[in-house]
């Protein structure tokens, strides 16, 4: 019964996400662009969610996204690779960097880990500014080309983005990556790996005494988290067709946390729901852009005071009722 319900919910969601929304906004490229941005931000936030899942607060997601964005931009503009190769390359580079950085830093716990990851965001920004032979410094890399066509044996799998309505093309690509990302996340959480991750969240020392290879698992979680950031960053940069050191900042890193928390840490879909609710409701309040940080911060404080378990805790989660319920972890 639960399976049928899950399948029904999932297909309804896909129908709305892939058919209804593009159809509704077919004449409004701006709105479509906003939705695409929300998709990709939710993908990046999903990485932060996974780090929450093993009990770490990652405040460096903006840094990883920036690395992914720059990697893609450099691969495309300096090496002349196609976007599709660069997308995979960006993911790969971000993962490698996250593993190199993560091996020493994941030994730090709690507040210490947050402090150092926060510094990572700044490190990425400074690196983008000072390694100017590679990144053009503060000027950034501009005029990135649109993704080209993908053909296999004469059959066009994906058309050239320049030849079709690019807003639609980006929307579908973003939606596809997001669905893929969240499906992967769902799979990870509901596997043996997911149980191991939960054991880390509860108590690392205890997990370790049961023979769980804690350092390896932590690095795996960070690598997945960075992969999401790298792919998301690369996509975002290609959509904007430019990248600057300020494309992802300290503030973005904090927003990703807020998205996860608003949606709720108890459900895989928390990052998705949080991002869409917050990002879209904000777009509707036109003219308040000036006060965005203030309103976000008030929402954040209000959440902590009155709704510590997120939006999905209000009613039974609509999507994926088969998820394990997460207990409040003792520190």
């Amino acid at each position: 019964m639960a399976k049928v319900k899950t399948a029904l919910g999932a297909s309804l969601f896909l129908l709305v996400y892939l058919v209804l929304i593009p159809w509704l906004f077919r004449d409004q490229p701006y709105r479509l662009g906003v939705l695409t941005t929300a998709s990709v931000l939710s993908l990046i936030s999903a990485g932060v969610w996974l780090m929450f899942y093993i009990g770490r607060i990652n405040m460096g997601q903006g840094g990883f996204a920036l690395v992914g964005g720059y990697a893609a931009a450099i691969l495309v503009s300096k090496l002349g690779l196609s976007f599709w190769v660069a997308l995979i390359g960006a993911g790969f580079i971000t993962v490698v960097i996250s593993i190199l950085v993560g091996l020493p830093l994941l030994r730090l716990k709690g507040v210490y880990f947050s402090m150092i990851t926060l510094s990572l965001t700044e490190t990425a920004r400074l690196a983008a500014q000072s390694l100017s032979s590679l990144t053009n410094g503060t000027k950034g890399i501009l005029n990135l080309p649109l993704p080209g066509a993908v053909e296999i044996a004469g059959f066009t799998l994906i058309p050239d983005f320049a030849s079709v309505d690019k807003h639609f093309a980006f929307y579908f690509l973003g939606a596809f990556l997001t669905i893929l990302g969240f499906a992967a996340l769902y799979r990870v959480v509901n596997s043996r790996l997911g149980w191991l991750f939960r054991s880390l969240q509860q108590n690392e020392d205890l997990a370790s005494s049961f023979g769980v290879d804690v350092p390896r698992l932590r690095v795996i979680a960070l690598a997945i988290c960075a992969l999401f950031a790298g792919i998301g960053g690369a996509f975002f940069v290609t959509m904007q067709q430019s990248v600057y050191p300020a494309t992802f900042t300290f503030q973005d890193s904090t927003y990703f946390l807020l998205y996860c928390f608003l949606g709720g840490l108890g459900s895989v879909w928390g990052a998705f729901v949080g991002t869409f609710v917050l990002f879209l409701s904000f777009e509707m309040l036109q003219g308040l852009n000036q006060y965005q940080p203030l309103i976000y911060s008030l929402i954040m404080i209000g959440m902590m005071l009155w709704l510590p378990n997120g939006l999905l805790s209000i009613k039974p989660p609509f999507f994926g009722p088969g998820e394990p319920k997460k207990e409040e972890a003792r520190p």
């Binding site: 607060i57 405040m59 507040v111 947050s114 503030q251 904090t254 946390l257 807020l258 928390f261 940080p293 203030l294 976000y296 911060s297 008030l298 954040m300 404080i301 959440m303 902590m304």
Partner: peptide, 10 residues
């Protein structure tokens, strides 16, 4: 921690 990040932004 999130509360304090929120107060910082505020």
């Amino acid at each position: 921690m999130l509360l304090s990040a929120g107060t910082a932004m505020m």
